[in-house]
Amino acid sequence: MKAFALFFTPLFLVACAGANVKPIVDMQGVNQAKYDTDLQQCQAYATQQDGAAKSGLTDAAMGVAAGALLGLVAGGTGSNIAQSAGVGAIVGGGYGLYQGNKAQEAVVTNCLRGRGYKVLN
């Protein structure tokens, strides 16, 4: 359980990074004040998308189940099953955090492109 906490604590601290992304935009001919307003609005839209924290928890729970099942199928003992479940939680949670951030970043990028900005990344 200690390893679980050590792994997830820093990841949850940056869990909202996806919505707060600031893409690289070609600013030639762009009004900075209008861009700042548009960026804030797009970031607000991104918070409506499931973020890293929710995706991480969901996938961590699925990882626990998958890891425990694999440990059981492999004929493990109680402690081996628990270790497999822990590994599943870490892998699943990490994947969920990554996917949640990417989904929010995509909302910001698509929103800015929809408003006519040339997003470079």
Rank of each mutant, 00 (worst) to 15 (best):
A53T: 13
S55R: 08
G56L: 07
L112Y: 06
R115V: 03
A66K: 12
S79G: 00
A82D: 14
N110R: 14
G88K: 14
G75K: 11
A65Y: 14
Y95F: 15
T58D: 04
Y98F: 13
D50P: 10
Q104C: 11
A68L: 13
Q43N: 11
L39P: 13
E105I: 14
V119E: 01
Y117I: 10
Q41R: 14
A46W: 06
S84Q: 10
Y117P: 04
D38V: 03
L39V: 10
V64N: 03
G78L: 08
A46N: 05
Q48I: 08
A106F: 00
N101W: 08
N80G: 14
T109H: 11
L57Y: 03
G75N: 12
T37V: 06
N101I: 09
C42F: 05
G75I: 06
Q40E: 10
G96V: 09
D50Q: 04
Y35G: 02
Y35N: 01
V91H: 02
N80P: 01
Y35T: 02
D36R: 14
A66Y: 06
T77H: 05
G67V: 00
L69G: 05
V119S: 06
L57P: 02
L120E: 12
A68N: 08
G93P: 11
G86V: 06
D38M: 10
V107M: 09
G78T: 12
A85I: 09
I81G: 07
A65R: 06
D59P: 02
I90P: 08
G94Y: 07
D50S: 05
Q83G: 05
G93Q: 11
V108Q: 04
D36M: 11
Q48P: 00
Q48Y: 12
C42I: 03
T37M: 12
A61H: 02
S84D: 07
A52W: 01
V87G: 04
G51S: 11
Y95L: 15
V91G: 01
V91S: 04
K118R: 14
K102H: 10
S84Y: 14
Q104I: 09
A103W: 09
L72F: 11
C42P: 00
G92K: 10
A103I: 03
Y117V: 02
A82R: 09
G86D: 03
A103K: 15
T109P: 01
A65Q: 02
V119Y: 10
V108D: 04
V119D: 06
A82V: 06
G78I: 04
A82F: 12
L112W: 09
T77Q: 08
R115D: 01
Y117R: 07
G93N: 12
V119C: 03
T109W: 01
L39E: 12
T58Y: 14
A103G: 09
Q83I: 10
D36E: 15
G51Q: 03
L72R: 11
G76N: 14
G51P: 05
Q99P: 00
K102M: 10
A82S: 14
L120D: 01
G96Y: 05
G51W: 01
D50E: 03
L112K: 08
S79M: 13
V91N: 02
